[in-house]
Design a protein around this nucleic acid. Structure first.
Lengths: 103, 103
DNA sequence: TTCAATAGTTCATTATTAATGAACTATTGA
DNA sequence: TCAATAGTTCATTAATAATGAACTATTGAA
């Protein structure tokens, strides 16, 4: 059984958040999620064509462990949800401000 | 003769900026610079006690190559200046917003 | 109920990036 | 000219990233 690790809201750090977003592909993933309903399965990760699924999985893990997304298994696929409220409770407005410029 | 590499303003990337700031020590350095007059020599890097000077030099290089600081030699020491206007012309308000939460 | 398809993780390997002691370069002042 | 100061560069070791291959879990059909 796969168990996903998610930091609690107060364990989301600024350096961790910035580090997770310090990659063009991850910026695009998060930006796409925000433009959608805040959700995305790995296979829907349209910003990342031609990317090995192990690499994609790795990127989602980085985002997950930084506290940016929450991953839950729904049927055969993973449901990744942007933790927008948690992030905003730690760093109000920061994520939107960053994504205004990239993704 | 030591030559420092600085990206031009339009070559400052969002991912590069975030990556350079994705480290507690570098966040503190940049934050200290902003709270001062925007300048700092390596030896004045008070946020970083007990850090090997080669490591400190490395951190300043990361900041320099991301376009966050400009380094120039003045006498025996290096003068590091925050490129606040360049950064704000690329990403208005972003740096201040980030530093509001850390450093 | 078993078998193939789908979705994604984990592992192993290779490549890149980070941290630091040691050696080096450049400037200043005695 | 020599020592002190400031910082870089080099070499080594440690940590992190990218990806193919193998594995696990769920679904749907034969």
């Amino acid at each position: 059984m796969v168990q996903f690790v998610h930091p609690s809201t107060q364990d989301i750090t600024l350096a961790g958040l910035l580090g997770a977003l310090a990659d063009p592909m991850r910026l695009r993933i998060v930006s796409s999620m925000l433009q959608r309903d805040g959700c995305m399965s790995c296979s829907e990760a349209a910003p990342c064509p031609n990317m090995a699924k192990s690499t994609l999985s790795h990127h989602f893990r980085i985002l997950r462990e930084a506290g940016i997304i929450h991953t839950g298994k729904v049927g055969v696929e993973n449901r990744n949800v942007l933790r927008i409220e948690d992030i905003n409770s730690r760093f109000p407005g920061l994520l939107e401000q960053i994504l205004k410029f990239g993704g």
